[in-house]
Design a protein around this nucleic acid. Sequence first.
DNA 1: AATTTTTTATACCGATCGGTATATTTTAAG
DNA 2: CTTAAAATATACCGATCGGTATAAAAAATT
Lengths: 196, 196
Amino acid sequence: MTKAERTRHFIVEKAAPIINKKGMAATSINDIVEATALTKGSVYGNFESKDEICLEAFDYLVKRVVADMSMAMSRASTNRDKLFALFDYYFNTVAQQEGNYGCPLMNFGTEADDTNPVVKHKVSKAIQTTENLIAKIVKAGIDAGEFKPSFDAEVFSIKAFAMIEGGMWIARLQGNTKQMQVIVDALKQEINDYCK
Amino acid sequence: MTKAERTRHFIVEKAAPIINKKGMAATSINDIVEATALTKGSVYGNFESKDEICLEAFDYLVKRVVADMSMAMSRASTNRDKLFALFDYYFNTVAQQEGNYGCPLMNFGTEADDTNPVVKHKVSKAIQTTENLIAKIVKAGIDAGEFKPSFDAEVFSIKAFAMIEGGMWIARLQGNTKQMQVIVDALKQEINDYCK
DNA sequence: AATTTTTTATACCGATCGGTATATTTTAAG
DNA sequence: CTTAAAATATACCGATCGGTATAAAAAATT
């Protein structure tokens, strides 16, 4: 790992939470310079443009969410518990307000949808990946004889993901997790209803 | 209605869709000057700051959504049909891509949640109002003997609103309404299940 | 250790940002 | 029609924007 690679990574690490919080357009190079305690010349020696930093920051944030989520689910043995762990992960991250600036998919996606086709496409793919992940677990549960075959994996994955993203968005704006709790409980209830 | 009042309204009308599309921070006074074909002096003769324009634009957009939604629901006679009309309204607005830049609550809320407490509070109130509206219709349906008393109005309103906001967000990023259709169908299904 | 290459710091670029002072024009009151 | 008041246009402000040329410093190669 060369010095430049390490510095690139360092810059992304410091910039990502700021961009996730303030938005891409509202985050200035100066914000990043201050956060890294580097200079503008150093930043532009490692990145071609602010846009490139934003793209890498997005990838970094998504990778971290995926890693944390996988970690949380890995401890579960049944498919039911995997889904529960997934929902709990989302609930817990949004519940801990400290240093949590919301789901990067939501933040980057909402800003990019009418202005930044590259980011928009990245978010779109991440949405599909997450939904597929949920559907896959449901299907595995059906195959394992854990869930009833009438459990519609596609429909549930769409409903669950939309509800979780919507719920996290509401929780952040309301400043509490009351409604997110209702949503997670309802999703768990639906899973239990389809358990044999 | 004085000239100034008319001009204020005119500016808000022209600025609102731009702010909803690009975001508050990314929309410049120059964007508004161009859209209105006025001059900067004229704009600042009618508004104290860009912030004030953003606030009025938000109010304007929300009022329009509420008006359109009420109109769509007014044609329904039963509470079931009112809920159906509400869901169809959201589906139809997100389905018409032309000139639709997404739900103002979603756009303003996501940008404001970590940066603009005033807008954040406005969005928070609007979320509560919309959820209460849904819950109220469900309760009215129960009272009218239309729905089973086991239909939990609070839980349903939270689930439905989160799912619709999440669904519209997904539809805009994916560029199609496939998943929003699944969501609306699922919500209608749930209502029908609670119909007597 | 010497030298070449890479990385970082300084100083600056034109453009644009939100906002304002003031002159001109338009509107409304008498 | 006159005139006072309100609204609009012009020209400008300092600050900040993203980005760059170049010099100084640090790292890597020999």
